[in-house]
Amino acid sequence: MKQQSLGLGHSNKRTRRREFLGEMERVVPWAELVALVSPYMPEGRRGQPPFAVEPMLRIHFMQQWFNLSDPAMEDALHDVPLFRDFAGLGGWDDRLPDESTILRFRHLLEQHKLAPQILQTVNDLLSAKGLLLKSGTVVDATLIAAPSSTKNASGERDPEMKQSKKGNQWYFGMKCHIGVDADSGLAHTVRGTAGSVNDVVEANSLLHGQETEAWADAGYQGAHKRPDAKAGVNWNVAMRPGQRKALDTSDPRQRLSDEIERIKARIRAKVEHPLRVVKRQFGHVKVRYRGLAKNTAQLHTLFALANLWMAKRKLVGAPA
Rank of each mutant, 00 (worst) to 15 (best):
L132W: 08
L77K: 09
I102W: 00
R106P: 08
L133G: 13
G91D: 14
L119G: 05
V122H: 10
K113N: 13
S127K: 12
L77F: 03
N67D: 13
A115N: 07
F66M: 11
L77N: 06
A115R: 02
R84L: 02
G130W: 11
K113C: 10
T121M: 12
Q63D: 07
L82P: 01
I118S: 02
Q63C: 13
F83K: 04
K129I: 00
L131A: 14
H107R: 12
Q64I: 10
A72H: 03
S69A: 09
M73L: 05
L89I: 08
L114A: 06
F105D: 00
W92H: 14
D94G: 08
A76E: 12
D124C: 11
Q120G: 06
D75R: 15
A72M: 10
F86K: 08
L109P: 00
E110K: 03
L126Y: 09
D79E: 11
G88Q: 07
W92K: 15
R95W: 07
G130S: 13
A115F: 05
P81Y: 00
Q120K: 11
S100I: 06
D75Q: 15
D124Q: 15
L77V: 06
F66P: 09
Q111L: 09
G130Y: 11
L125Q: 08
I102M: 01
W65C: 09
L68Q: 09
I118Y: 04
P81I: 03
N67F: 05
M73N: 04
N123F: 04
K129L: 06
L114E: 02
P81G: 01
S127A: 14
L125F: 05
E110Q: 08
D79T: 00
